[in-house]
Design a protein around this nucleic acid. Structure first.
Length: 901
RNA sequence: GGGCGAAUAGCUCAGCUGGUCCAGAGCGCCUGCCUUACACGCAGGAAGUCGGGGGUUCGAGUCCCUCUUCGCCCACCA
């Protein structure tokens, strides 16, 4: 890739992107600058699951990060974007278990060691594909620092953190009801058990009184847990039922006598007022049971089949033979049928209710009583809340901070143990001889207390227990490395809002607790990629768009343009998976436009070095030159500000419209004749065009890295320098020139007016017209004089006359159009004129003007407006009224002259 | 059940501190052009009661209330 190669006539993303990426890598441009004084700017990637393949969500997430990183790199920061992957405990284990299932085996057939080896084998063979795919979309990550949450170094950080928390007394073992996924065979945290509405039923079941009295009725959505009931509870304040407390009922099917108790937990007004208490199968009931010292019989196995845990693998006890081994949902039906048969089913009401589901496999989660490891979160949450309230970490959009705050305020302890094999094994050892139970930094050989043999806890840690350390474990913590010193804390975290609690909040807590500083000052939460029905894109729903396919068809730049251009702060991205052409048309079109602008310029700029803009004598700059340079100044400022405010849509849209609407449609059209050999003004035009194009390429580079670099390198005098490290256009990008902007706007209005008349009257495209521009202010006359050739060419005008006052050419042979500040243009059409049509045209204009005038006069006529509105607003309205009145008079004059009715 | 957000052209969205926005863009649509950078283009154009209703204000797409519809987050009423 060098500037010696000519630009291909046809833009081909495929032809430029891969070689450029290889070149960036070969030059080491992704490593943070070591220039003295370069302040670091750091982003750590939200590590995708190691076995993931890129989907649009990743495409969006990583494009945003790359835009920010490239922007700051160009601004001279020592930009580091640290990449990596997550071992993703449950997800990855599931993937390999599925592979085994295809072979007709389970992980238990292999055993723990062989299974873990198998997962590693899979990860080594198939893992990390996604990192290669990130390269295809142009991500400028420092690949030399790639991390994996299961790397030895990361594992060491995990171990250190666990032991520290242990030493601080913040880790404890708890026997309680947790969320259990019967399919994944593991406990889940509260966050991993997601609510989803399910069409269910409320079953009203009669429990006969042990003393033969009238049966009571209990309402439940989960009849299958009935066998685990140990009591029926009523609210102590419930007048209707208070008398029942202390009596006993006969638990149906199990045929056991259980007491009726009183507990605050029961809502008196709800249902029948009687609630079955099943401590081993419901978290609330567990608390009730604890308060009343009740037994906790387990009647379901780990895979959610009926079975009395007390009896091991045998039927009996609370679970009678016909139900034994039955799946929970089958059992629900069976138990309901049995109750019905016995006349104990009073009624069934269908009901929509929220049921928790496994976030990895979507199986309905089963509350399960078991021993698990927990982290006491409150002491970690308090400093995080304080940091947030002090503004040491902010959220974009801001409202997401409220969610964060709310969650931290009511934080619950974190269940960190998983009954999986793929993950960081819990570093706790047990001594069966002396009962020691302790966490170790290094694997122990024998019990430090009694010298007896030790066995390690079988469970592994929640995958998020390694993720929450990511911003500092990746930089070498717990070692005091140079990287940690230089790059921590990081700057911005870019991620999806659904991960705030899983990850963002915990990283903030961990950063403060273990390193002493918030891990990033800004959390930018972008939207979700959805289809045209606003359904989140996902592989399982089949409504996804494969970003790699988009790259192959339209290029990474088109992909990136499309996602950033559609990205308002906090809004979702809607794309149509059934119409890639439409979804990515604007990006593809724009890339093509850029390419062709490049072709035009490169064929005209010559090979020699061009003078810098500053070296062109001011006197040689024409009105269009000054105009485009002034526009550029503003566009550079605005683009910078949009990026600083994370308004990516505007950050892309601003240079897009400048390049297309101003630079290509007007400026390039204007300078075409000047670009011909030896044409007057050519030197200035070349210098200005090269300057402006160079700068707009830089402004677009963060969003469209490939095509901008491909073009930039070929600009004269660039040698082979990459735009990646070209300075970001600052105050020196252009030169503000309000006069030039106003004058050029007038010229544009004139050209547009003539074009409209041409279209209106169907004038042949090639035909040159005569126009007379009249009622000109001196400044406007000057503008026309400066842009005469351009007006002739762009409006196809053969003869251009100007007049300070009223034009002498009037009558029924042309069309009038009004220009800014009272000027007007008369387009001579000769016989082509249609008086009726012209009258209609002018009348439409008059009607519109009258409407505006009425509005502004209404305002000015209002006493309250003149006294209460700010003086500058009143002045503005007064000026409007003056101008519009003048226009109206001019229009009325034309109508009269034409003899319109 | 609690909290939050959004409703602007056929579609996807801008419209940032209420007044130069007589309501904008991209895609789509209509008309005319292959004008030697680009038809993935050029020029022109049609298209919106700014979800409904009420209010605040001299003035509201922009602020407040309410209704409707979508969406998100949280949640132990079985």
């Amino acid at each position: 890739m060098s500037d010696a190669e000519p630009l291909a006539p046809q833009y081909s993303a495929a032809a430029i992107e891969a070689p450029l990426y290889a070149d960036w890598q070969a030059r080491g441009l992704f490593a943070p600058s070591t220039a003295p004084g370069a302040r670091p700017f750091v982003i750590v990637i939200p590590p995708p699951n190691v076995t993931d393949v890129l989907h649009m969500g990743h495409g969006l997430n990583n494009t945003v990060q790359d835009v920010l990183v490239r922007f700051e790199r160009m601004r001279g920061r020592a930009a580091l974007w640290l990449p990596g992957t997550d071992h993703a405990g449950i997800a990855t284990q599931n993937v390999v278990e599925k592979l085994l299932a295809a072979e007709g085996r389970t992980r238990f057939d292999l055993g723990r060691e062989a299974f873990v080896a198998r997962v590693w084998q899979h990860v080594r063979a198939k893992g990390g594909i996604i990192l290669q795919q990130l390269k295809a979309i142009g991500c400028s990550c420092d690949w030399s620092r790639t991390r994996f949450t299961f790397d030895p170094a990361m594992s060491r950080a995990v171990r250190e953190v666990f032991v520290r928390l242990w030493e601080e007394g913040l880790i404890y073992r708890g026997y309680r009801v947790i969320h259990w996924c019967p399919r994944c065979h593991t406990a889940l945290s509260d966050e991993e058990a997601e609510h989803a509405d399910v069409e269910g039923a409320l079953y009203y079941i009669r429990y006969p009184m042990a003393d033969g009295g009238e049966p009571i009725t209990v309402a439940t959505t989960r009849p299958e847990t009935l066998l685990g009931d140990v009591a029926v509870a009523v609210n102590p304040e419930d007048g209707r039922h208070r008398a029942f407390v202390g009596r006993h009922v006969v638990l149906p099917i199990a045929e056991l006598e259980i007491p009726i108790i009183a507990d605050e937990h029961v809502e008196a007004g709800f249902g029948t007022g009687f609630v079955k208490i099943t401590p081993a199968h419901d978290a609330d009931d567990f608390e009730v049971g604890r308060r009343h010292d009740l037994a906790t019989p387990i009647v379901m196995t780990a895979d959610a089949r009926m079975g009395d845990a007390a009896l091991g693998g045998k039927p009996g006890g609370r679970v009678p033979a016909p139900l034994f081994g039955m799946d929970r949902f089958e059992a629900r039906k069976a138990i309901v049928a049995m109750l019905k048969e016995r006349g104990l089913l009073e009624k069934v009401e269908s009901r929509l209710h929220a049921v928790r589901h496994c976030y990895r496999c979507d199986t309905v989660v089963e509350p399960r009583l078991s021993d698990q490891w927990f982290v006491t979160m409150e002491p970690l949450a308090a400093p995080a809340l304080e940091a947030y309230r002090q503004g040491r970490v902010r959220f974009i959009p801001e409202r997401r901070g409220d969610e964060f705050e709310q969650w931290l305020t009511g934080i619950r302890d974190w269940n960190i143990s998983r009954q999986l094999w793929w993950g960081h094994r819990i570093p706790v050892w047990y001594c069966d001889r002396c009962g020691l139970q302790q966490a170790f930094r290094e694997d122990p050989v024998a019990c430090p207390a009694c010298g007896g043999p030790l066995r390690q806890d079988e469970d592994v840690l929640d995958t998020w227990f390694s993720s929450w350390l990511w911003p500092f474990s990746t930089l070498g913590w717990p070692e005091a490395t140079a990287d940690l010193e230089r790059y921590y804390p990081t700057d911005v975290l870019v991620t999806a809002p659904e991960i705030i609690f899983f990850w963002v909040a915990r990283m903030i807590m961990a950063g403060i607790h273990f390193v002493g500083r918030v891990p990033f000052h800004t959390v930018y939460l972008h939207g979700t990629v959805r289809d045209t029905h606003h359904v989140k894109m996902s592989k399982s729903l089949g409504n996804g768009i494969d970003p790699i396919e988009v790259v192959n068809r339209y290029g990474a730049d088109a992909l990136r343009f499309a996602v950033t251009n559609g990205l308002g702060v906090g809004t979702d991205i809607i794309l149509d998976p059934n119409d890639l052409d439409t979804s990515f048309a604007s990006g593809r079109n724009f890339a093509n436009k850029l390419w062709n602008v490049g072709r035009l310029l490169l064929s005209s700029l010559g090979d020699g070095p061009l003078p810098a803009l500053a070296e062109v004598p001011a006197g040689e700059l024409t009105l269009p030159d000054r105009w485009i340079v002034s526009r550029l100044a503003r566009v550079a400022r605005e683009t910078t500000e949009h990026l600083e405010r994370f308004r990516l849509n505007d950050a892309v849209g601003t240079p897009y419209h400048f390049l297309w609407d101003d630079f290509a449609d007007w400026y390039l059209e204007e300078i075409k004749p000047r670009l011909r050999d030896e044409a007057p003004g050519g030197a200035a035009a070349r210098a200005v065009a090269a300057h402006v194009f160079d700068r707009v390429l830089r402004l677009l580079h963060p969003a469209m890295p490939f095509i901008t670099d491909a073009l930039y390198r070929r600009l004269p005098g660039r040698g082979d320098a990459s735009i990646m490290v070209a300075p970001w256009p600052g105050a020196d990008a252009g030169r503000d020139d309000p006069d030039a902007e106003r004058d050029f706007a007038f010229v544009q209005a004139l050209v547009n007016a003539v074009r409209e008349v041409r279209a209106e009257y169907g004038v042949k495209p090639g035909a040159e017209l005569k126009i007379v521009v009249s009622r000109l202010a001196p400044r406007q006359a000057g503008a026309i004089a400066q842009a005469k050739d351009m007006i002739r060419r762009l409006a196809k005008v053969g003869a251009l006359e100007t007049a300070a006052g009223e034009a002498s050419v009037l009558g029924r042979v042309g069309s009038h159009a009004l220009l800014p500040d009272g000027a007007e243009v008369f387009v001579v059409l000769g016989d082509a004129i249609d008086v009726g049509k012209e009258c209609a045209r002018l009348k439409t204009e008059l009607t519109r003007l009258d409407g505006q005038l009425a509005a502004v006069r209404g305002k000015l006529g209002s006493e309250s407006f003149r006294t209460r509105a700010p003086a500058d607003v009143v002045a503005r309205e007064t000026e409007k009224e003056r101008q519009w009145t003048a226009r109206r008079e001019a229009l009325a004059g034309k109508l009269a002259a034409l003899g319109c009715a």
